[in-house]
Amino acid sequence: MDHVLTLIAPRGGLSAAMLHRAREALAALGAAAGTPDWLAPEEAADLPFAGLSPDQADAAARAALTGEAVDIIAQDTAGRRKRMLIADMDSTIVTTETLDELAGQAGIKDRIAAITKRAMNGELDFEGALRERVGMLKGLEVAALERTWEETELMPGARELVATMRAAGARCALVSGGFTYFTGRVAALVGFHEHHSNTLLEAEGRLTGHVAEPILGRNAKLATLKRLAAEDGLALAETLAVGDGANDLDMIKAAGLGVAFRAKPVVAAAARARVDHGDLRALLFAQGYRAAEFAGS
């Protein structure tokens, strides 16, 4: 069949009954639905179908599974496995907003986090908001960066996502509105081929309150996706982009599989695919990988 509906839940949270309800919802609209294929027991399964568009199937399955902690991704079967991964860092590959955590070292986390929240939901210009937040850190000792890094945790599934896609030959890039101090360490730890981000300026062991220009923001993330795809001779349909904030939205919309991951409301509403409940392994299931194929766990 030419389309597939993938259901993904936190481990142990997906039942055969849920699959049956989704299958019945598609059938009620006249679709031909095939036999479910479990990608991981009680965690992820594919439901092949024909006769509906992916958007129609997505809406029908969501209506049938209202209230369930399950993620639903409907797409074409052809070309599911992507040849490039472009990932945001903060609240995507790592669990926190590193700038907010760095602000905690200066005792102003709440003030900066409030600006971050508005910027990530598209209420503020990203570049201006970044300059404002960095300016509030003027004079903070550079050693605070290392203390922040020591407390930074990876999002569950990050290593498996990158290692599995690398093993399949995909180029993996970390593209962040955050800072090179963190993206370089995250890229090395997780296994990204490269990282692109902003640079905090420092002098005499303290932050100057400035960030190097030009700032890597929303437009630059999209431009990086297009440039890296062109370098590898890939169509955008062959790429996967994932992020949570408004500055990720253009690259998410442009990618062949664009995923809003535990995203801000404006991003979740606009993205074609979203993951609200699962971890980053969900991006592998969405590409049809079975848990037995995962690397890096």
Score class of each variant (00 low, 15 high):
residue 68 E to N: 00
residue 95 T to H: 00
residue 71 D to A: 00
residue 28 A to H: 11
residue 70 V to G: 06
residue 34 G to C: 06
residue 91 S to I: 04
residue 105 Q to C: 10
residue 34 G to H: 12
residue 53 S to D: 09
residue 32 A to M: 04
residue 36 P to D: 03
residue 116 T to V: 08
residue 96 T to E: 01
residue 72 I to T: 07
residue 72 I to A: 06
residue 14 L to K: 12
residue 80 R to V: 08
residue 107 G to A: 11
residue 41 P to K: 04
residue 77 T to F: 12
residue 69 A to F: 09
residue 116 T to E: 02
residue 110 D to Q: 07
residue 50 A to G: 13
residue 89 M to S: 04
residue 35 T to Y: 02
residue 69 A to K: 14
residue 11 R to K: 15
residue 32 A to E: 08
residue 33 A to M: 12
residue 113 A to H: 01
residue 88 D to G: 10
residue 75 Q to W: 07
residue 15 S to L: 10
residue 12 G to R: 12
residue 26 L to Q: 02
residue 116 T to R: 01
residue 72 I to N: 03
residue 85 L to F: 03
residue 88 D to S: 08
residue 108 I to A: 05
residue 64 A to Y: 07
residue 14 L to M: 13
residue 94 V to C: 01
residue 21 R to Q: 14
residue 41 P to R: 13
residue 43 E to L: 04
residue 59 A to R: 15
residue 68 E to R: 06
residue 105 Q to K: 08
residue 40 A to S: 13
residue 79 G to R: 12
residue 47 L to G: 13
residue 52 L to V: 12
residue 55 D to G: 13
residue 54 P to T: 05
residue 89 M to Q: 07
residue 46 D to K: 01
residue 88 D to Y: 05
residue 99 L to M: 14
residue 93 I to D: 01
residue 21 R to S: 14
residue 62 R to W: 05
residue 28 A to W: 04
residue 105 Q to E: 15
residue 96 T to M: 07
residue 32 A to F: 00
residue 81 R to H: 02
residue 47 L to W: 10
residue 97 E to I: 05
residue 80 R to N: 11
residue 116 T to I: 01
residue 59 A to L: 14
residue 51 G to V: 01
residue 28 A to Y: 05
residue 92 T to W: 02
residue 26 L to M: 10
residue 78 A to E: 15
residue 51 G to Y: 03
residue 25 A to D: 09
residue 66 T to E: 14
residue 40 A to T: 07
residue 12 G to T: 10
residue 102 L to Y: 05
residue 75 Q to P: 06
residue 81 R to Q: 13
residue 30 G to A: 06
residue 77 T to N: 09
residue 71 D to S: 02
residue 113 A to G: 05
residue 15 S to M: 05
residue 50 A to V: 02
residue 94 V to Q: 00
residue 63 A to D: 14
residue 77 T to C: 10
residue 57 A to Y: 03
residue 81 R to P: 06
residue 24 E to I: 06
